[in-house]
Design a binder for these strands. Structure first.
Lengths: 206, 206
DNA sequence: TGACAACATGGTCAAACAACCATATTTTAG
DNA sequence: CTAAAATATGGTTGTTTGACCATGTTGTCA
C-alpha cells in the first residue's frame, strides 16, 4: 500500500484504536485529540481515503478501514504460519509465511466445544500429556476407536473408546503403565460419554 | 443480569452486530432496520441502559456495551475451560466451568511468535506429533535442554537443544527411531537457531 | 525559482442526530 | 380486573457532524 506520512500514520493509528473500542471517532474528536482544527482532520482523512486506507460508509462517524488495510493489519494480529523455511532469509520473511491464522480459526468451533485440562499420563503415547488442554466437542456417542471424554466415577477421563458388542472398552495409551483397558457395560447409568477429543493444546513448554 | 424481553433482545443483538462491524448504529438506523419510529428505539434503548446492558458514551452514536454484558458475551465467545467435572450435571453446567478463555489468551503472544507445522516423528516422545503446529518464540539462542527450532541444511527442525562446550547437540525424541543425536559446531554458518518452542497445537484428532 | 503536496486555520451550512414531550395501544403480573 | 410495564407514533428542539470554501504556511523536488 502507498506509504503514509508521519501525520497520516498517527491519525490512522488513532482511528484504528478507536475502532477497536467500537466507536468510530468523529472528525472533531480526532481534531481534539491532536489539538487540530476539524478541517485539518478532514484533509488528512481525505488523504487516507485517497491512499486506500480508509473507506467512508457515509453518514456521521462513517469511517471504516478498507479491506486492503484490514488484511495488512491481520498480518500483525494473527500468528504467522510458516511453511517451508528457506535458509538465509530472516525467519519471518514473507516468502516463509504461508498465511496468518488466528488460533480461533484453527478449530472451527461450534457452540458445544470446550477445553478440558488433562491430568495424568494415561494418553501420553497419543501425544496427550499431563497438563495439556484437550479440545472436546460435546457428543453423546463417540465413534469406535476415537479418543473421547468419558464421565466415570465422578471423574472425566480421556481415553480411546472402543465400542464392542456388549461393552465399551476405554483404552489408555501409556506403554510404561501397561495398557490396562477398562471395560464398562453399555448403557451403564454411572457412565456418560461426554464428547469427542478433536484437538490438543500444550502451553508452557519449557 | 436482568432478563430482557424479546424485543429488547432483538434490538440488543442488532446493536452488538453493528458494533462488531465497528459502526455503532444511530437510533434511526435501528428504527429503520426494525421499521419502527426513532422514538420506539429511544425507549427500548433506555430500557437496555436501565437494565445495564448498554452504556452511553454521550454524543451521536454513543452506544457502548456495558462491561457486565461484554463479560457475559465473552462466555459465549471464548471456549469454556472445564475444571473438575461433577457427575450428574450437564457437562457445560456452570459449576463445571472454570473460566472462559480465548485461545489467544492461552499463549500470551508477542510480536515474534509464530506457528510452524511439524512434519516428521522425531519428537513424538515429547508429545509433538507429525502434523502438529508448534508455537515458536523467535530467539537467537535457546536455553540448554529446551526444545527449539533450528534451521539446518535449508530445513527447519524441531529438536531438543543441548548446548555443550564446543558444540550443540540436537536430540530427537523418538524411541523407535533410536535417539540419533546430531552434533553441530557452535557458530556454524549454516546453522541458525530460530526460536524456542513454547507450545504445541494439534487439530483434527480423529 | 516556481509548482506542488502536505499541513494548518477559521467560518458556513444543511443533514443527521439524541433527547424529550404528549399520547395511545398492547402485554404482563398481581 | 386493574395497574404497571412495554411498545409504539408523531412532533419539536438544540447539538453534533461532515462537507466545503477561502486562505496561509512549510517543505520538497525539479
Amino acid at each position: 500500500m502507498e506509504p503514509l506520512t508521519e501525520k497520516q500514520q498517527q491519525i490512522l493509528e488513532f482511528i484504528v484504536e478507536c475502532l477497536r473500542e467500537n466507536h468510530p471517532p468523529s472528525q472533531r474528536e480526532i481534531a481534539g485529540h491532536f489539538k487540530l482544527a476539524q478541517n485539518a482532520v478532514y484533509q488528512l482523512v481525505s488523504y487516507l481515503k485517497k491512499k486506500g486506507y480508509l473507506v467512508d460508509a457515509g453518514g456521521h462517524r462513517g469511517l471504516r478501514l478498507s479491506e486492503a488495510y484490514v488484511e495488512e493489519l491481520a498480518e500483525t494480529e494473527g500468528m504467522p504460519l510458516l511453511g517451508r523455511v528457506a535458509a538465509g532469509e530472516p525467519i519471518l520473511a514473507e516468502e516463509n509465511v504461508e498465511s496468518y491464522v488466528t488460533l480461533e480459526a484453527l478449530f472451527n468451533r461450534s457452540k458445544d466445544t470446550f477445553l478440558l485440562k488433562v491430568s495424568g499420563d494415561s494418553m501420553v503415547d497419543e501425544g496427550i500429556l499431563d497438563g495439556d488442554y484437550v479440545v472436546v466437542k460435546s457428543a453423546a456417542r463417540v465413534g469406535s476407536g476415537q479418543i473421547g471424554v468419558v464421565l466415570l466415577d465422578d471423574e472425566a477421563t480421556v481415553k480411546r473408546v472402543v465400542v464392542q458388542k456388549h461393552r465399551i472398552a476405554l483404552k489408555p495409551a501409556n506403554r510404561k503403565a501397561g495398557y490396562k483397558t477398562r471395560y464398562i457395560k453399555r448403557f451403564d447409568k454411572d457412565v456418560r460419554i461426554v464428547g469427542k477429543v478433536i484437538g490438543c493444546i500444550r502451553t508452557d513448554i519449557r
